[in-house]
């Protein structure tokens, strides 16, 4: 697996879909590819947010701390972007992510990511578009919930 295949994976992420290939390549080049063993944590709820990850291969569970202990709320797999909200909003991790099987991910460093956003408006726009769409979806869900 090389930079090219990572760029292909990044392209599957909705947030990065519209970004110029050369920029995506820069994003991939400045990121690290890391492997997690089954059961190894990406990060724990409450940790400072230092990076976002794109799952290249394998699966990861999203766990939340509750008074009753940790519960799994979702499972992520191929090309999922995770941890991006934390680095954009500069808040601690809102959930724990654990690899459910041997998993490979692309680690996008927070500082590098923010620098790229600052440098290339096109990237910032793509991120904003994605965030706006998410907000819209949430709104729609809220409307659906309140009307049901």
């Amino acid at each position: 697996m090389t930079l090219e295949t990572e760029v292909q994976s990044l392209r599957q992420v909705p947030m990065f879909r519209d970004i110029d290939p050369a920029r995506l390549k820069l994003l991939a080049f400045t990121s690290e590819r890391v492997q997690f063993a089954a059961g190894q944590r990406f990060f724990a709820q409450g940790d400072p947010s230092d990076a976002a990850y794109v799952l290249l291969d394998g699966r990861a569970s999203v766990l939340l701390n509750t008074p009753k202990g940790e519960i799994q709320v979702a499972e992520l797999s191929g090309n999922a972007l995770l941890g991006e909200m934390g680095i954009l909003s500069d808040t601690p991790r809102s959930a724990t992510i654990v690899a459910s099987e041997p998993t490979t991910a692309l680690r996008i460093d927070k500082r590098v990511f923010l620098e790229l956003l600052a440098q290339f408006p096109q990237m910032s726009l793509a991120v904003m578009r994605e965030l706006a769409q998410r907000l819209e979806r949430t709104n729609a869900q809220l409307v659906a919930q309140s009307s049901s």
Binding site: A22, K25, E115, L116, Q119
Partner: peptide
């Protein structure tokens, strides 16, 4: 040259 094109010289990256 492809991926660093467009970054201003002196950029920390």
């Amino acid at each position: 040259t492809e991926i660093f094109q467009g970054l201003p010289p002196g950029h920390s990256l």
